[in-house]
Amino acid sequence: MAAAAGAPVPGPVISGWAVSSPYGLGRHEFAEGLRHGQRAIAPVDKASWPVPYESAALVPGFDVRAVLGRKGTRSMDRVTGIAAATVGMLLDEYGAGLAAAPESTGLVLGTSGSVQSIMDFTRDALTGDKPYLVDPARFPNTVMNCPTGQSAIRHSLKGPNVTVSGGAATALLALQYATRLLRGGHGTALLAGAVEEFSVQRARIERVAEHGGADPQPLGEGGALFLLEDEEGARESGRPVLARVLGSRFRAFQETGRAGTVLARCVADVLAGAGARADDVELLVPGTPPGLLGKQEEHALDGLTGNRLPLRSLIGDAGAASAAFQLAAALAEAAACPTLVDRLALVTAVDRDGTVGALLLRLS
């Protein structure tokens, strides 16, 4: 039935999710780690990771070939392996009926790409033996959309294939993009989320980056993906409606001191668009960046009294995957807490490069 004139257009529902996190591969490990407040940040093995950090939050024991097998993984880098593994887990559990219409099932993946692959390939181009200098099989890893393309090929997803990058807000941008594709009729089901890898080169860059006057936090890695479709399609396929996407808003700021004001406008806009009030929000999952940006985010959320779910202190700075973990945490919390059924959850992100975002959900 068409929406009445002036009424909000119904958003898609989230009918499945999968996560690869510092707690391990799978939703159960992630949910249990959060439920117990387990800190997944651990000392770094400097022999394997010569990085300027003493601790990090890595996906435990992750090895691309061990997880995905030897076929097609000889030149696959870490971020692509994490993406392909997470897509596989989601499809294994929630993919009933999707294989029958591969052209209508797509992937919108947020990522920063692999700094390690880019810098390794560049070094080889300058120092490798002639005449070839580099291993051409590793060139695709230097392109930002490699994890998205390789995951789609491996799992036969023939619908829209999109890569999004936006710092800490990446996953929220990916979900918005997937929502627009669904509304435009470009697919009937879309996997959307974000991934990030831990690497020596990422650690070196992050160590010297500007962190709002605060010391850099331990780095994390992993990813989370969510299955988006309309409610009718989910129910026909026997998938649960885990949450309804009510809307998202994004803005930019030039000065760090303006981030809170800009984010507050995002929050107000997304609530107004859904016809909701600040006191309707039962669960808040902020990004909690370090330093001044974190204080700005706290300022923007001062008027909201919902329960806050801390995350970064448990799993570190997950880079492009940060908001994906935040959304996964909201779904895990809803599954464990019946009082959150039919309540609103708000996920916010503030990126040091000047982007803020807010995503509003109705938990089911």
Rank of each mutant, 00 (worst) to 15 (best):
V347H: 07
L309C: 11
Q296E: 15
L90K: 12
L304P: 01
L271Y: 14
R312V: 14
F325M: 10
H155Y: 14
A40C: 00
Y23D: 00
L284M: 09
M89A: 14
G220C: 00
A323W: 00
L360V: 12
G167N: 06
A336Y: 13
Y132N: 08
P218V: 13
I205S: 10
A320C: 06
H36Y: 14
L344D: 00
V195D: 03
R39G: 03
D77W: 04
A214Y: 01
S165R: 03
G149E: 04
G95S: 03
L311N: 07
N161L: 08
G110F: 06
A83Y: 08
P289S: 07
A42C: 09
L90V: 10
S151G: 02
G167Y: 12
V87N: 08
A100S: 15
L314N: 02
L107P: 05
Q38P: 05
G275Q: 04
V200W: 07
R35Y: 07
W17D: 04
V241W: 02
S237G: 05
T127Y: 15
A178R: 07
V44K: 05
Y94V: 08
A66P: 07
W49D: 04
S114K: 11
L126C: 11
R277D: 15
V44S: 00
P136C: 07
L309D: 05
Y23T: 08
I41R: 02
L225C: 11
A335T: 14
A174I: 12
P43K: 00
L90P: 01
T170P: 02
M89N: 12
H211K: 04
L175S: 10
E206S: 10
V108W: 04
A66V: 10
G24C: 01
E297K: 07
L340Y: 07
R74T: 15
E229W: 03
A318P: 00
D280R: 06
R207Y: 09
P338V: 14
V195Q: 04
M144R: 11
A358F: 08
R39Q: 06
H36F: 10
G149F: 06
A7Y: 05
E232S: 13
T288S: 15
D215T: 11
G166P: 00
E298N: 08
A332I: 13
E221M: 09
C266F: 05
E210R: 14
M89W: 02
T188P: 00
D45A: 13
E298H: 13
F226R: 00
G128M: 01
A56H: 01
V59N: 04
A178N: 08
L25S: 03
L190Q: 04
A259M: 03
H28C: 11
A323I: 07
V356T: 13
V241L: 06
R244N: 06
L98V: 08
Q217E: 10
A189K: 00
A168C: 11
L263G: 02
K46Q: 15
P43M: 02
P240I: 05
N307H: 09
A335M: 12
E255S: 08
P286L: 01
H36E: 11
R74F: 14
V115I: 15
I153T: 13
D45W: 00
E297F: 12
A334I: 13
L361F: 11
G88F: 07
G81H: 12
G11Q: 07
V267Y: 13
G257C: 03
D230T: 03
P52L: 02
Q116R: 02
A334L: 09
V262R: 04
L98G: 00
M76T: 13
G113M: 01
R27V: 14
A252D: 09
